[in-house]
Amino acid sequence: MAKDKTDLLQGTLDMLILKALQLQPMHGFGISVRIRQISEDVLRVEQGSLYPALYRLEEQGWITSDWGISENNRKAKFYEITKLGRKQLANETANWERLSLAVNQVLGAKLKDLG
């Protein structure tokens, strides 16, 4: 099971959760499915990290939660991104792009030199 799993960097999970919630409110299970889908099964959220992360994000005021009815008519807890959360997501996304660009450049350069 761990073969195709890529470990998430500290703090990246928060960003992914906020991203998943950007379009619509979702329950915890939905968030985990969504992250797997978007990442084409590369990223798999450990259940052990998901719920503490949700709690943390709620404490920070980036998401809120409320009980609602799921797509198959069951009571479920839905999470919704807040205004503060969207701002945070924008900041994190910008940071991430800068970082990944830099990392890509370094890795690309190395490959070229070796090639």
Binding site: H27, R74, K75, A76, K77
Partner: peptide
């Protein structure tokens, strides 16, 4: 609530 939420998670996964 926490237990309920997690119970829901397992059931949803089962259905999937």
């Amino acid at each position: 609530e926490m237990a309920e939420e997690m119970q829901f998670h397992v059931e949803a996964e089962t259905e999937r």
